[in-house]
Design a binder for these strands. Structure first.
Lengths: 187, 187
DNA sequence: AGTAAAATTTAACATAAGATAAATAATCAG
DNA sequence: CTGATTATTTATCTTATGTTAAATTTTACT
């Protein structure tokens, strides 16, 4: 749990009681490379913290697979459009490497919000931050060329190339594998 | 304040005390057509509720003006990437019609969170919902053609064409005015 | 190690959208 | 109401990215 507590402290400091309460609704999960952590069609009821490994959220548009985002160590991952609406998700979460995660039951977590306003505050801040990232992503996708986006991704996550197949990166950037290969070929 | 309370109740019911506390930090604002409500370079410290009118958030990419989003009646608008980070915003908010708004001081609002967990919860839910909208917007921009996005916008906000100049709609869709005109010309 | 499968690149051609400029239509100020 | 300004459309040409297919490289499995 240490990594998780360090992660939490970036957003909001928790009392020992609050930490214990979260510990009780969390459990370790290990997943092999390429396995799905959560599958399409199920409602998201778990928030994951990545201790080790790389995750991606993906979905299908007319049988073409599209990667929505990646997440690396010391980050949280969840399909928020399902988590916050209670509707089944059209998306899946897959681990790209052998991974170690901490699974936090979102149902139990949301119950804790009543007893621990500090926990509600913590997750409010975590998701506010994720919201800001998503607003910035809109800007990035909408108004930068594919090449600019590729370079921005490399700058932001320099090791993404070593850890993530290019086919996933291509759809994350909103282009085809062929286009990405062409962009990479230029230099 | 009635419209605002109705809006709040969609997310979280508030006690009378909480409503009064929010009333005290809110004030009406009237803005003429085409005036900026908030300008580029300032840190966002106000959350607006639109009673009447249409707003857009816009910014510049290399002296080309880009519309990030629109907001209509009975919605909240704020430059969240500044609101949640405390950094100056590169974006402005402009009212596209003569408008009536309620301005809520975000600094005072965030102070209220300590006294009224129900207010913190309310805004947590409001911004979670906005976050989900933004996640869906990423999907819309990234994996639908300009024409699909135009049709989706019309379906979602059928009166947008009557109220918003096409040049704003074009950059919102991530295309040029010329392209939009071409798409519209097809039918 | 050797083979099959998967990932990536390359090539050739097609298409959607960008850029620029000019024409037309709509709006606004006096 | 009229001229000036702004918004929108149309036209032409250019370019980035898509599509399909094949070639090559890498990875995974026995």
């Amino acid at each position: 749990m240490n990594e998780l507590i360090t992660y939490f402290n970036q957003f909001n400091h928790l009392s020992e009681n609050a930490i214990n309460a979260i510990s009780e609704i969390s459990k370790p999960v290990n997943i092999k490379k390429n396995q799905n952590l959560q599958s399409i069609g199920h409602t998201c009821r778990t928030i994951y913290f990545i201790k080790k490994g790389v995750a991606r959220i993906y979905y299908y548009k007319e049988d073409i697979e599209i990667t929505e985002c990646f997440a690396f160590e010391n980050a949280i991952i969840a399909r928020v459009e399902s988590l916050f609406t209670g509707k089944p998700s059209r998306k899946a979460i897959q681990m790209i490497e052998d991974s170690e995660l901490i699974a936090i039951s979102s149902v139990k977590l949301f119950d804790l919000y009543d007893t621990f306003p500090e926990i509600e505050r913590l997750f409010r801040k975590i998701f506010e931050s994720a919201y800001v990232d998503t607003v910035n992503r809109v800007e990035s996708i909408q108004f930068h060329s594919a090449e600019e986006r590729y370079n921005a991704l490399l700058k932001e996550s320099p090791n993404v190339l070593q850890r993530v197949p290019l086919k996933y990166i291509a759809s994350y950037l909103g282009i085809t594998q062929v286009s990405l290969s062409r962009i990479r070929g230029i230099r």
